[in-house]
Amino acid sequence: MLVHSRTGKWATWAVFLLLFVPLFAVPLLVVLAASFATNWSGAFPSGPTLDHYDAATAGDSLQALTTSLVTAVTASLAALTIGTWAALAAASLGRRGKRFLDALFMLPVAVPSVVVGLAVLVAFSQPPVLLNGTRWIVILAHTVLVTAFAYTSVSAAAVRLDPMYAQAAASLGARPSYVLLRVRLPLLLPSLTAAAGLCFALSMGELSATMMLYPPDWTPLPVQIFAATDRGSLFTGAAVAVVLMAATLLVLFAVSRIRTRASYR
């Protein structure tokens, strides 16, 4: 931070806390508190209990957690592969080709996810590719939604990657595929892991497109939370939400560990 005086530092911190605490921390703390409550009629919750967690980590909710994790991991790996592939292709294209790909991959971000969900539903509800009613339609929709983020973050890094490394490798006799595997991808690893984390987190929290598509045997956690709150079980919903947050944070933390080890200089 570029603030040096003591009072200046304090003031900066005060402003930061004033903005951060009510906007970000309090809502999360409220959910956390609610997940342990049996009652919340006054200013504070009462009747501390772990019952909601029993419900949130068993039966349907546990099933939903697995569903969410499998969906998010599959969708982010697919998105990472497609996004990286496209980003590397874009980096080797001319300026016009790159701009076209950039625009193409911005589409799912620009279009509301409900629309993406509807599009996927309409497209894959009849033969030749009939995915409606299977888990694959959810995974596919998530992949479409998060690939844009993988593409954008890898593309930015691929453009910044100094071509001298790939050229040095080629001068040493390395084929283009060898250069890609041993030089370019390892050098892009930090941004690949960042992209993976982002895609995973986005997929874990996706609700609007999922709502239109999920089959009964493939209910991700956000849908579970929505269903719980919809039938009035706010505290159970809160406990499931905490499980969702914890699972997401845990995976992000693991990914960032890989990331630290993969960054050089």
Partner: peptide, 10 residues
């Protein structure tokens, strides 16, 4: 060998 050496940092 180029000016910036281009050693693979990883």
């Amino acid at each position: 060998v180029v000016q910036q050496y281009a050693l693979f940092p990883h």
